[in-house]
Design a protein around this nucleic acid. Structure first.
Length: 429
RNA sequence: GGAGAGGUGGCCGAGUGGUCGAAGGCACCAGAUUGCUAAUCUGGCGUACUGGGCAACCGGUACCGAGGGUUCGAAUCCCUCCCUCUCCGCCA
C-alpha cells in the first residue's frame, strides 16, 4: 500500500511511476478526489464533535429545566454527527479499497520496460552441460525411475497433483533439509515453523488480498486461507508491532508447503511437476531498515544463487523491468535454473524488495530510538528455493544415458550416502 | 462442544455514565543531586487522522479486544462476535 500523503503531495510524479509498472493511473485521480472529500468531512466532523463534547460537559451542570431545553438542540447535533460519521466511514472504506488496489512503485534503479522483454539477464553461471545423448524431460525420467507418479496423483486429488515415492520423496526431503541447514547455519536466518493457514488480515498484509483472491484456497466456513507461500506468515510475523531498531535486520526462513489455485495458468505448464496446486518451498524473508533494503536485496539474491552454485546446476539471474515487477515488488530478481530435458530456464527463486509496501499494509514498524517516531520497515522475500523446479533441474541435469540420476554431492549426506538413483530394472540386474 | 472468569497505554494495574487519553506503579528518556557501578528528586514518556507553524512545536478529533445499540454524553449500560484463562467433554 502506498502512502496517501505521497499521492496527495506528488500526484504527477506518482502517476508517472505507476505508469512504468503498467498501472492505469486514472484511478489515482479518483482516489485523490475521494481523499479530499474525506478530509473535508473529517475536519467538519471534528469541529462538530468538539462542540458536542464542550456542550455536553456543560449540560451536566445545568438545572433540570435548562437541561430539558438544551437536550433538543443536542439531539439534533448528535444526529448530524452520526450522519457525518456514516458518510465518513463510507469514504474511508472507498479510499482504503482503492489504495489497496494500487501496486507498489518501482525503485529508481529498476530498468523501465513493458513486460518480459524489458528484463535483463544480469548474471549467468556455469555454461549448460553438453550432453552426448538426448536429455529426457523430468516427467519421462521421473516415471522411468519410478519416483514420480502422475496418474496416482490425479487419482488422489486431481489434475496438477502428483505423488513422489522412494528416492524421489527422499530427494525432496533432502533438498528441504539441506537448504534449511545452509540458511540457518551459514546465511544467518532464523528457522520458523509457521501455520499453513492464516486469517484474511495476514493475506491482506502481504498484498495477496484483495487483488489475488482467486489464486488462493480458503476454508469455506472460517476465515482461514491456505498460504500460497511462506512469505505470508513470515512477513506478517511482526504485523502490528513496533520493533526496536536494535532487532533489525531480521532474517527468517521457513520450509512450508504452498497452495495455489493456478486458475490463471489454465493450460500452461500442465506436464510434469513445474506448476502444481501444492508444492514445497523454502522461503527467505527479511525485515530491515529502509536505508538497507537495496543492499539486502542483493545479498538475498546471492543467498539463493549460492544454493544453485552448490548444487552445480547452471543458473542465471534476471532483473525484472518495471513492467514485470508484479503487484508488491519495488525491485525484483528471478533466479532461473537451466533444465536441459524440457529445454527451459526454470524460475526457482523470485527475490523481491517490497520496500514499505507490505509494512504499511501490515503495520510493521520500528523505532530508531527512545522518543523517536515509529517508521515502517522494509520487507523482502525470496525463495530459497522452490522445490519442484529445483528437483526438475536436479533430475534433468544429473541424468545419465542409462536412465539413472546421479545425486548431487551436497545432497548425498541427506540421502544416506546414496550416489545414484537407478531405475527399478537396473536395481534388479 | 458445555460451564465459569476475563480482555484498559511497553508491562503491571485502578477506573461502573460527564471534568478519563484514562489514577498509581514498573520500565524508558532528559535534567538535578549524591565521593563512587546504585539511590533520591523534578520533568517527560501512546498511536492515527487532521488544522496551523511549512523545523525541534501548538491545537482539534478518534482510539480502553472488534462491531453494533442506548444516551445530550460511554472505557463505564445493552447486544453480537473474536480472543485468553480455568474446569468438564471429545479427540489426533
Amino acid at each position: 500500500m502506498l502512502d496517501v500523503k505521497l499521492l496527495r503531495e506528488r500526484p504527477d510524479w506518482a502517476k508517472q511511476e505507476l505508469a512504468k509498472v503498467g498501472f492505469a493511473v486514472e484511478a489515482v485521480d479518483l482516489l485523490l478526489e475521494c481523499d479530499s472529500q474525506r478530509r473535508r468531512l473529517q475536519h467538519q466532523l471534528d469541529t462538530e464533535r468538539a462542540q458536542r463534547a464542550r456542550q455536553s460537559r456543560e449540560l451536566g451542570r445545568l438545572s433540570a429545566e435548562e437541561r430539558e431545553q438544551a437536550r433538543d438542540e443536542m439531539r439534533a447535533l448528535g444526529a448530524r454527527i452520526a450522519r457525518g460519521e456514516r458518510e465518513l466511514a463510507e469514504l474511508e472504506r472507498r479510499t482504503e479499497a482503492m489504495l489497496l488496489e494500487i501496486p507498489n512503485l518501482p525503485r529508481p534503479q529498476v530498468p523501465v520496460g513493458e513486460g518480459e522483454n524489458g528484463n535483463k539477464v544480469v548474471r549467468l553461471e556455469l555454461v549448460p552441460r553438453a550432453f552426448d545423448f538426448e536429455p529426457l524431460p523430468h516427467w519421462d525420467l521421473g516415471e522411468r525411475l519410478g519416483v514420480i507418479d502422475f496418474e496416482r496423483g490425479v487419482k488422489l486429488a486431481g489434475t496438477r497433483f502428483y505423488v513422489m515415492t522412494g528416492a524421489g520423496a527422499r530427494l525432496e526431503r533432502a533438498l528441504v533439509d539441506w537448504m534449511l541447514d545452509v540458511k540457518i547455519t551459514e546465511q544467518g536466518y532464523l528457522e520458523v515453523w509457521p501455520p499453513l493457514m492464516v486469517n484474511s488480515a495476514m493475506v491482506l498484509g502481504s498484498g495477496h488480498l484483495p487483488k489475488f483472491r482467486d489464486t488462493m484456497y480458503r476454508d469455506a466456513e472460517e476465515d482461514f486461507w491456505f498460504i500460497p507461500t511462506a512469505e505470508v506468515p513470515l512477513t506478517n510475523l511482526y504485523a502490528g508491532e513496533i520493533l526496536d531498531a536494535s532487532r533489525l535486520p531480521i532474517y527468517l526462513t521457513a520450509y512450508t508447503p504452498c497452495f495455489r489455485r493456478e486458475k490463471m495458468s489454465a493450460g500452461r505448464d500442465v506436464r510434469g511437476i513445474k506448476r502444481g496446486h501444492q508444492f514445497d518451498k523454502v522461503e527467505m524473508v527479511k525485515v530491515v531498515a529502509p536505508e538497507a533494503s537495496d543492499q539486502e536485496l542483493e545479498t538475498l539474491v546471492e543467498n539463493a544463487c549460492e544454493l544453485c552454485r552448490r548444487l552445480e546446476i547452471p543458473f542465471r539471474v534476471v532483473q525484472m523491468c518495471t513492467g514485470d515487477l508484479g503487484f508488491t515488488a519495488a525491485a525484483k530478481y528471478d533466479v532461473e535454473m537451466w533444465a536441459p530435458g524440457c529445454g527451459e530456464w526454470l524460475e526457482v527463486s523470485s527475490c523481491s524488495n517490497c520496500a514499505d509496501f507490505q509494512a504499511r499494509r501490515a503495520q510493521i514498524r520500528f523505532r530508531r530510538g527512545a522518543g523517536e517516531r515509529p517508521e515502517f520497515v522494509h520487507t523482502l522475500n525470496g525463495s530459497g528455493l522452490g522445490l519442484p523446479r529445483t528437483l526438475i533441474a536436479v533430475l534433468e541435469n544429473y541424468q545419465n544415458q542409462d536412465g539413472s540420476v546421479t545425486v548431487p554431492k551436497v545432497l548425498r549426506p541427506y540421502m544416506g550416502g546414496l550416489e545414484v538413483i537407478r531405475p527399478p530394472e537396473s536395481k534388479r540386474g
